[in-house]
Amino acid sequence: MRHFEIQLDVLRSRLLEMGGLVETAIHRSVLAVIRRDEEEARRVLLNEARINQMEIENDDLAINLLATEQPVASDLRFLTAGLRINNDLERLGDLAINIVERALTLLRSPETRPLVDLPEMANLAESMVHRSLDAFVKKDAALARSVLASDDSVDERCAEIYHDLTAVMQREPSRIPECVAFMFVAHNLERIADHATNIAEDVLFLVQGVDVRHHAEAKQPA
């Protein structure tokens, strides 16, 4: 195997490792909210620096390979998609941190009955992240397209949660701070789904060479 191919494999492995860390961070951040689990929240905070460091190192490796190997065709698509996925993974890590910060806020308020069905939305968003990374590993375009199809469902759940929380705030003004925290969590989950969608779009570019961002595919001449 050529040196370049070995380096591409290194980058692929590192992105997958980073993806694993990010998936875990998201899952733990959601548990921290739903179970009011401070230990899970702390673990997410501890892993943030590692994710950030990996983003820098992966960027460095990809840019070096672009500069020195002048890749073309699928290698070029892998490196450009890899750079974007790397950035999306780091943002996903940040969003997990945002959720954890809301979890810590909620921990300071008295424990009450669940306000909204956050676990269902979280499951959908987490599934999208998992499937987008799975599609990256398997170079599976169909799986990537299934992620794109899920984004609207997450948006709908988010809108429902906003609606429900607004009703609670009108009924029980004393619970406004708690409701606002949940709204932020829902917003961050919605953003997580958006980044999973970005990753799936990059997988389609990698596998099929098509650009589906912003419905670009439909705009291209047949």
Partner: peptide, 10 residues
Amino acid sequence: FKNPSRKETE
């Protein structure tokens, strides 16, 4: 150079 259709080209 971005997305050749033939494996030999790639």
